[in-house]
Deep mutational scan, measured.
Amino acid sequence: VTLFVALYDYEARTEDDLSFHKGSKFQILNSSEGDWWEARSLTTGETGYIPSNYVAPV
């Protein structure tokens, strides 16, 4: 499992996005959609889309 960590805070703009804070960790579920990845937050357990340029591999 590849884990990613948030580099910045992000406020969701749609109900499909995940809001998160810098330092939040994610499991990436689908990275084939270009700049928006489907991810599960390891902090909240919620699933949604995150901007790929806001995260980096742990």
Rank of each mutant, 00 (worst) to 15 (best):
H21S: 14
W37H: 03
T2R: 12
D35Q: 11
I50V: 09
T14R: 15
D35C: 14
Y54M: 10
F26E: 00
A12S: 11
P57K: 08
T2N: 11
T14Y: 15
L29W: 06
K22C: 07
L42G: 02
R13I: 11
G48E: 01
G45V: 01
S41G: 03
F26R: 00
D16S: 14
W36R: 14
S31D: 13
Y54N: 03
K25I: 15
D35I: 10
S32R: 10
D17V: 15
L3A: 06
R40D: 01
W36V: 07
S41C: 14
V55M: 09
V58M: 12
L42W: 08
T2Q: 13
G34I: 11
Y8E: 07
S52F: 08
D16H: 15
W36S: 06
E46I: 08
E15H: 12
P51E: 02
S52Q: 07
A39N: 00
Y10H: 05
Y10N: 02
Y10Q: 01
V1W: 14
H21G: 09
L18C: 04
S31M: 15
L42M: 11
A12K: 08
S31T: 13
N30I: 07
F4W: 15
S31N: 12
D9E: 06
Y54T: 05
I28E: 00
E46Y: 07
Y54C: 09
V1N: 13
P57Q: 08
A39S: 02
D9Q: 04
E11Q: 13
I28L: 06
V58D: 09
N53P: 06
S32A: 11
E46H: 09
F20C: 02
D17G: 15
T2E: 11
P57D: 05
T14S: 13
Y54Q: 04
Q27D: 07
E15I: 11
F26L: 08
T43A: 13
F20G: 00
S41F: 06
Y10A: 01
H21Q: 14
G48H: 03
A6R: 00
E38S: 08
P57Y: 06
Y10V: 01
S52M: 09
N53H: 12
Y49S: 06
R13A: 11
T43P: 05
N53L: 09
L29D: 04
S52N: 06
T43E: 15
Y54V: 05
L42N: 04
E33V: 11
G23M: 03
S32H: 10
R13E: 10
E38W: 15
S24F: 11
T43S: 13
D9C: 09
T14M: 12
Y49W: 15
Y10P: 00
V5G: 02
L3F: 12
V58K: 04
D17Y: 14
H21I: 13
D17S: 14
S32T: 12
V55H: 01
F4K: 01
W36A: 05
T43Q: 11
G23Q: 02
K25C: 14
W37R: 02
V58Q: 07
A56K: 10
D17K: 15
G48R: 02
I28R: 04
A56V: 14
R40K: 11
D9I: 03
P57H: 06
I28Q: 01
G45P: 01
V5C: 08
T14A: 12
W37A: 02
S19R: 04
D17R: 15
Q27G: 03
N30S: 10
S52C: 12
G34K: 13
D17P: 02
E33Q: 14
P57A: 10
D35S: 10
S41Y: 06
T14P: 02
G45Y: 06
N30Y: 07
S24D: 15
A6G: 04
E15L: 11
G48P: 00
R13S: 11
R13H: 10
E15G: 13
A39V: 14
D35F: 14
V5I: 13
F20S: 01
W36F: 10
R40C: 09
T43G: 08
V55F: 09
L3C: 11
G48C: 04
T14W: 14
H21N: 12
V5A: 05
W37C: 04
P57R: 08
T43W: 07
Y8Q: 08
E46W: 06
G45T: 03
A56C: 09
R13G: 08
Y49P: 02
E46F: 08
V5H: 05
T44R: 03
A56N: 05
S24N: 14
F20N: 00
K25V: 15
L7N: 03
G34F: 09
N53E: 10
S19A: 06
S31I: 12
V55R: 00
T47L: 08
K22H: 06
G23K: 02
P57F: 06
E46K: 12
S52P: 07
T47S: 08
A12P: 04
P51G: 03
L3E: 09
I28C: 04
S19H: 07
A56T: 11
S31K: 13
S52A: 13
I28W: 02
P51K: 06
V5T: 05
E38L: 15
A12M: 04
A56W: 09
A39L: 02
E33S: 13
T2S: 11
G48D: 01
V5D: 02
L42K: 03
I28H: 00
F20E: 00
Q27E: 14
T2L: 13
P51A: 04
V5Y: 12
I50F: 01
P57T: 05
N53T: 11
G48K: 01
W37V: 06
R13T: 13
V55C: 02
I50D: 00
T44V: 02
E11N: 09
Y10S: 02
S19F: 03
D16G: 15
L18R: 01
W37F: 07
I28V: 10
S31L: 10
A39P: 01
K25W: 14
K22E: 06
T2F: 11
L7G: 01
S52D: 01
T44N: 07
V5S: 04
Y10K: 01
G48V: 03
G45M: 07
D9T: 06
L29P: 04
E38Y: 15
L3S: 06
E38A: 08
A6F: 01
S41W: 04
E11W: 09
L18E: 00
F20A: 01
E38C: 15
E15F: 10
L18N: 01
Y49Q: 08
K25P: 05
A39F: 03
V58T: 07
T44W: 03
A6D: 00
S19M: 03
F26N: 00
S24Q: 15
W36N: 05
S41K: 12
Y8D: 06
I28S: 01
S41T: 05
Y49E: 03
N53R: 12
G34D: 13
P51M: 07
T44F: 03
S41I: 10
W37S: 02
F4T: 03
A12H: 05
K25Y: 15
A6N: 00
D9F: 04
T43L: 12
L7C: 08
T43H: 11
I28M: 04
W36T: 06
A12E: 03
L29Q: 05
G23V: 01
Q27R: 08
S24L: 05
Y8R: 09
H21R: 14
H21P: 09
G48T: 01
G34R: 12
E46A: 10
V58H: 08
Q27Y: 14
N30H: 08
Y8T: 06
T14E: 09
L18P: 00
K22I: 08
E33T: 12
A12R: 09
F4G: 03
L29I: 11
A56M: 11
I28K: 04
G34Q: 12
V55I: 10
K25H: 12
D16N: 15
S19W: 03
V5R: 04
N30M: 07
W36G: 02
F20L: 04
L42V: 11
G45D: 06
G34S: 13
T44Q: 03
G45F: 06
F20M: 05
I50K: 01
L29H: 05
V1Q: 13
W36P: 04
S24P: 00
E15K: 13
A56L: 08
R40S: 05
T2K: 12
S19P: 05
L29T: 07
L29G: 03
T44Y: 03
T43N: 09
W37I: 06
Y8G: 05
A56P: 01
G34T: 13
A39R: 01
G48A: 03
S52G: 07
S41L: 14
S32F: 10
